[in-house]
Simulated assay, not measured.
Amino acid sequence: MNKFNPSLEDTPSLYRAADSASTSGQRRFLHATKTRLILLSLAAASAITSWRVGGTEVLALVSAVAFAGALIAEIYLALTKPEKLWYEGRAVAESAKTLMWRFMVGGAALGIKEPKLAAEDHLLSRYREIANDLPGLELIPTVGLSDQITEYMRKVRALHLKERMRYYIKGRLDNQIDWYGQRSRWNRKHATIWVTLLLMLELAGLIAAILRATGMLPIDIMGILSAVAAGGIAWVQAKQYQALAAAYAVAYHELAIIKTGASKVLSEEAWATYVAAAEDAISREHTLWRASRPFA
């Protein structure tokens, strides 16, 4: 065994199915939301002037088509609720993943002191509870093995304490710390970009309004600027850049602190408690993430 981070094939089929469902829901929700906002902005832009070809007002027709497209996107979001699939799928996936790691490395309540068969039965029972908690969630099986307890999971669990500690710190804690750090920086960067863009749009709207009032601007572009700004605000609210940057930063520092305490662990009992504390910290971040999402 020469890797610390399990591949997708090494994870339980429940996790893979839930992760796939969540990714699909997220993609569909964001694409539909983006399409709707762009079409609404296009409809507003088409209304600032006129362009007649024969007896047809072309820009009015463009505006009508854009509004129709935005309406279709809105109906799609209302009927299919892809954001629900995103949030619920992620909840199942993260719950399955934390149980997987607890089982592999001997975290409470799946410690090494528990007999092998009893631990496996406990793990499968928890998986069953997780899946049953969200009966409306379609967990379509992914291609690959159907194992809920993979050979990789059993091999890691059979290692000595020091080796399991190494696997957990490198494969779980370091991985999560790096991910939280990268995502915190990414969200902070995009929050700054969007705030700057929205301020520029509002400033442009103010200047356009003044020029229009003084007769120096023959075309009324305030409507399009307002629509684009409103669309930008709606997109920022959907992405939650600032909230996620802060939440990921907190999780990053909390896990970094927890990691430093690994050197004090000298027994299986202490290790089981240590792993439980680390997984609880990761679960708290996910709980805050769900609470921050619209419609969650």
Rank of each mutant, 00 (worst) to 15 (best):
E114Q: 15
L71Y: 10
V58Q: 04
M104Q: 07
R126P: 00
A119P: 03
A66I: 05
I224N: 01
A247C: 06
M1S: 12
A119I: 01
W235A: 11
V275N: 04
L8A: 12
T23F: 06
S283Q: 12
Y127D: 10
A66N: 08
A45T: 07
P115D: 05
T214N: 12
I258K: 13
I258Q: 12
R172S: 02
W271M: 04
E74C: 07
S22N: 10
D10P: 07
E269N: 08
I177D: 02
S13R: 06
A191N: 15
E269I: 05
P12Q: 14
S50K: 12
D178R: 11
A251N: 04
D19W: 06
N187S: 06
R36L: 13
L59M: 15
P82Y: 02
L201H: 07
E9R: 14
G181M: 04
L42N: 00
S184M: 01
E9W: 03
L77N: 02
I38Y: 06
K116F: 07
G171L: 05
R102V: 01
G232T: 11
L255S: 02
P82W: 03
S24D: 12
S20I: 00
S50F: 08
L8E: 13
H253Y: 11
Y248W: 08
L59H: 06
T196D: 03
I282R: 00
E151T: 11
A96C: 08
A227H: 09
S263R: 14
A64E: 15
R290Y: 05
A278V: 09
V250K: 10
A251V: 05
G106M: 07
K34V: 06
S46A: 15
H31V: 12
T192W: 05
L40P: 00
L161N: 00
V92P: 03
R166H: 08
A44Y: 05
I140N: 11
E114R: 11
D10C: 09
Y167H: 15
L225Y: 06
K155S: 14
A108S: 15
H31P: 00
A262P: 00
G25A: 11
R183H: 10
G261T: 15
L225K: 06
V105M: 05
Q237M: 13
A131H: 09
P294T: 06
R183Y: 10
T142H: 01
S263H: 12
W179T: 08
T192C: 01
P115Y: 01
G205T: 02
K170C: 04
H190V: 05
T23A: 15
I149C: 11
E88G: 00
L61H: 07
F295C: 00
A247S: 12
M200R: 03
K155N: 14
A18N: 12
E114W: 00
P141E: 08
I257Q: 13
N2H: 14
R284L: 09
L161T: 00
V195E: 14
E9M: 10
L255R: 04
L30M: 15
A272I: 07
K155M: 13
K3I: 11
M100S: 12
A18F: 08
K84E: 14
A66Y: 03
K113T: 12
